[in-house]
Amino acid sequence: MLRSSLMAMALLVLLTGCGKDIEEYNKPAEYWYEKMVNAVGDANLEKADSYFSSLQSEHISSPFLSEATMIMAQAHMAQEEYLLAEHFLNEYIRRYATPEGREYAEFLKIKAKFLALPNPGRDQGLIDETLKGVETFKSSYPASTYLPLVNTMETQLQLARGDLNEKIAQLYDRLGKPKGAEFYRSIAPVTWVKSDEIVHADIPWYREMFEGDGSSSWYDFLIPQTRSVVSMDINESK
């Protein structure tokens, strides 16, 4: 009997606690802001997002929203959730940013895209998109204090793009398609650095098994050794 009573009380407390979380609404802006900040401090971004939504829904004109939006952007970036970080940065720029705040947010957007590229060889589109963002930033803020960092990211992205294009060109070489190889070698070549001075990124052995080192791969034996008809026609016409 005692055991049944204790279980019933525990269940009641649990249900009451859950109900309390669900029924929370119509709170002051300071309440939601504090809850959001505490959730971010606990690295519970799911709850933080929920508290931010409540703050935004119930207090659409609150002065807390500007700072709260930036906090959420940086919190998601710290958790390597770069798409969500960019979402909050776009919201910040669109709704709250002062000229100085906009510059910082635009810089963070570039940084978020840059950090989202742990394996640049796998996302040519994101490299190009980030480099376009860099050009826009440098044009909009030619005297920005963030330019040294932006220039460093730009250099690394240009090297990554050049290395990726060279690997694609080498693949076309192995397939006997010189036109394709020539095309990729002509895309924004890195002429200001000697190719033999570039230190290529180390590829973990478990990736290298499948991706190769750019010059050859374990699946080379599957690639036909004969040149394509198109390539033969091109070579014969020269």
Results as ranks from 00 to 15, higher is better:
G17Q: 04
G17I: 07
G17M: 06
G17F: 08
C18G: 06
C18K: 00
C18I: 10
G19F: 00
D21E: 10
D21W: 05
I22C: 05
I22N: 04
E23K: 12
E23D: 14
E23C: 13
Y25N: 15
Y25M: 14
N26R: 12
N26V: 09
N26G: 13
K27N: 03
K27Y: 03
P28Y: 04
P28Q: 07
E30M: 09
Y31A: 05
Y31D: 08
Y31G: 05
W32M: 05
Y33Q: 07
Y33F: 09
Y33E: 12
Y33P: 01
E34Q: 14
E34S: 14
M36N: 01
V37E: 10
A39N: 00
A39Y: 01
G41L: 03
G41Y: 03
D42S: 11
A43Q: 13
A43H: 12
N44K: 06
N44E: 04
L45T: 01
L45P: 03
E46T: 07
E46C: 03
E46D: 07
K47D: 03
A48C: 01
S50H: 09
S50E: 10
Y51H: 04
Y51K: 01
F52Q: 01
S54T: 12
L55F: 00
L55S: 00
L55G: 01
L55P: 00
Q56D: 06
E58T: 03
E58A: 03
H59P: 00
I60N: 13
S61V: 14
S62W: 05
S62A: 05
P63K: 08
P63M: 06
F64G: 01
L65G: 02
L65Q: 00
S66D: 07
A68G: 02
T69S: 08
M70T: 09
I71T: 13
I71W: 06
M72G: 08
Q74Y: 02
H76Q: 06
A78S: 13
Q79E: 15
E80A: 13
E80D: 14
E81H: 11
L83N: 13
L84V: 14
L84M: 14
L84N: 12
E86H: 13
E86Q: 15
H87M: 15
F88H: 10
F88I: 11
L89E: 10
Y92I: 07
Y92D: 09
Y92V: 08
R94L: 15
R95Q: 15
Y96S: 05
A97H: 03
T98V: 03
T98G: 07
P99V: 04
E100V: 06
E100N: 06
G101M: 01
G101Q: 01
G101L: 02
E103P: 02
E103C: 04
Y104L: 12
A105N: 11
E106H: 10
F107Y: 09
F107N: 07
L108N: 08
K109P: 10
K111F: 11
K111R: 14
K111C: 11
A112L: 14
K113W: 11
F114D: 04
F114N: 02
L115Q: 14
L115P: 08
A116Q: 06
L117E: 08
L117G: 11
P118R: 04
N119T: 15
G121T: 11
R122I: 14
D123V: 04
Q124H: 13
G125R: 11
G125Y: 08
L126Y: 05
I127F: 02
I127C: 03
I127T: 01
I127N: 01
E129H: 10
L131K: 00
K132F: 09
